[in-house]
């Protein structure tokens, strides 16, 4: 009677101290029945990836408002590869200009949810992405 729950690390890399968006998405994922590992502010990419591995997370959601999204996405995706964990899906939100999104997706980000995205959209996307990932593994 296996009873798997979707586990998502919600992280806030970088130095700005605004974690409202991260908290809103954490709450929405919780209400959708997921287990959310909330790591709080000012996380380094190394800390985020180690957390995702120890927590056996299905995905990492990162909230970035500082403008450094390209750096953080690149580094996190690189580290996941290095640690043999590139099956972990990576998605993000925050203040990310639309013209930067294609580059992030090309890098390996699964989805970018801009301001105004309904939490339902994010929840549905995560559920679908995780079930596809598990189907590949099985």
């Amino acid at each position: 009677m296996p009873d798997k729950k979707i586990r998502i690390v919600v992280a806030k890399p970088g130095l700005d101290g605004h974690d409202r968006g991260a908290k809103v998405i954490a709450r929405a994922l919780r209400d959708a029945g997921m287990e959310v590992i909330y790591t709080g502010l000012r996380q380094t990419p190394e800390q985020i990836v180690t957390t995702a591995i120890q927590e056996d997370a299905d995905g990492i959601g990162i909230s970035i408002l500082s403008g450094a999204h390209e750096f953080y996405f690149r580094r996190i995706i690189e580290l996941l590869k290095e640690k043999n964990a590139s099956d972990v899906i990576v998605f993000g939100g925050g203040v990310i200009p639309e013209q930067d999104v294609p580059a992030l997706l090309k890098m390996g980000a699964g989805a970018i949810f801009g301001p105004g995205t309904s939490t339902v959209t994010a929840v549905d996307w995560i559920k679908k992405a995780v079930s596809e990932k598990d189907a590949v593994k099985a």
Partner: peptide
């Protein structure tokens, strides 16, 4: 919903870089 916010490690995150510590 069966969902959860797991936030205990928030207070322990500084040990994440230490390979002698495993937090779950």
């Amino acid at each position: 919903t069966g969902g959860a916010i797991l936030a205990d490690r928030l207070r322990m995150q500084r040990h994440t870089d230490d390979s002698g510590v495993f937090i779950r």
